[in-house]
Nucleic acid binder design. Sequence first.
DNA 1: GAAAAAAATTAACAAATGATAAAAAATGAA
DNA 2: TTCATTTTTTATCATTTGTTAATTTTTTTC
Lengths: 186, 186
Amino acid sequence: MDISKILDHIHQLPEQSKLALQNNVTEIASSKGHILLKANKVEPNIYFIKKGLVRAYVERDNEVTFWFGKEGETIISMKSYVEDQPGYETIELLEDCELYELKTENLRKLFNEDVHIANWGRKFAEKELIKTEERLISKQFKNASERYLELMKDHPELLQRVQLGHIASYLGITQVSLSRIRAELK
Amino acid sequence: MDISKILDHIHQLPEQSKLALQNNVTEIASSKGHILLKANKVEPNIYFIKKGLVRAYVERDNEVTFWFGKEGETIISMKSYVEDQPGYETIELLEDCELYELKTENLRKLFNEDVHIANWGRKFAEKELIKTEERLISKQFKNASERYLELMKDHPELLQRVQLGHIASYLGITQVSLSRIRAELK
DNA sequence: GAAAAAAATTAACAAATGATAAAAAATGAA
DNA sequence: TTCATTTTTTATCATTTGTTAATTTTTTTC
C-alpha cells in the first residue's frame, strides 16, 4: 500500500498537507527477523508499512505479543511518540518488509504548523484508541476460545502468516492452550 | 477541579484557545445513580468531571465495568466522539457529580479552526491511548491477584469509593474471586 | 435503633488454563 | 533428499478462576 493511500486512509487530507507529510517520508526495506525498534529506548521515527508484517512484544520471563501490524498500518512506540520516553515494546519483522520512515521530530513540527495535519494526527490516535479499547473489552468478556474465533473471523490471514506461538501470546494464553482449543474446535 | 485546570492538565493551551473552549462549556450537577449516557445511542456531548466519580460499563449477561472516571477526567463515548456512531458504554454516576458539558459539535468546529485546540485534542487521545494500551498489557501479563495489587497501588482511593463488585468486574474477575483474593492477601 | 435490602465473604465443587514433558509434524539448511 | 531445528500437538497433573448457594456484614430506610 503506497504512502498516499496510507495517509488518506487514516484521515482524508488536503493535497498540500499530504505532500508536506510525504516530503518527510523516506522508503526503507528490511528483512524478516530484523528488530526494527527496541524496548527501553526513545525511538525517533515512526513507520508506515508498505508491505510485510511485524509484531510488537513486551519482554518479561517470556515474550508477550500484543500487536500485529500489516500493510497500511503504522508502527509507533507510543511512549516515544507521545511522551518522548523509552517505550516498552520491541518490534520484530515477521516477514521481509518495505517501510516508510518518518521522523517524529518533523511530524511534530508539522502538527504545530498545519491544522489539517494536527487533526489527521488526532484522528489517528482516536482510531487506535477505539481499537485498543475494543480489544480490552473483548479480553474482559470473552474466554480464550471465543477470542480465537474472533481473531479467525476478523483477521484470518494472520493465521496463515504468523506462527501459533505468537498468536497464543496475543490472545493472552499459552501455546499449549491454543493447541488444545484448536483441537476442540475440529 | 475547575475547567481551566482540567483543560491545561490534558495539554497546555494558549490563553485564547483555552477561553474559546471554556466559552462552550456549561456546568451541570447530577446525582448518584443517574445514568449520564446510554449505550447504543449517539452521545452529542462530552463531559469533564469537576467533582465526583463515575463508571463506564458494557452490558451483556452481566455488567462489565471497564473504566472509572474521577475529578479531572473526561467522560466520552469514544464511538460517538470519533465516529459519530452509537457507543457501547453506559455511564453511571457512582457519586453526586458536578460536570462540565461540551457539545461535540462545537468541539469539532474548534478543532478545524484552531491548531492549538486540534493539538490539544490530539494529545488527549494519545494519552488515553497509552493508558488503555498499558491496561491491555497488564491484563495480558498479570493474574487477577497481581492486577488487584496494582490497582491498590495506583488508585487506592478507588477501593474506598467504589463497591467491590465493580472493582472485580474492572479487574476482569467475579466478585467471589476478588473476595477470595482479598482473603488470601490478609 | 430495628428491619429490610444490598454488598461482601465463605465454602464446595466445576471448568478453564497453566506447566512440564514427550511425540509428531513442519520447516530450513547442507 | 536428508538431517537438524523449529513449531505444533498431545497427555498428565497443578493451579487459577468460575458457579452456585448459604452466611455474615454493611448500608439504607423507616
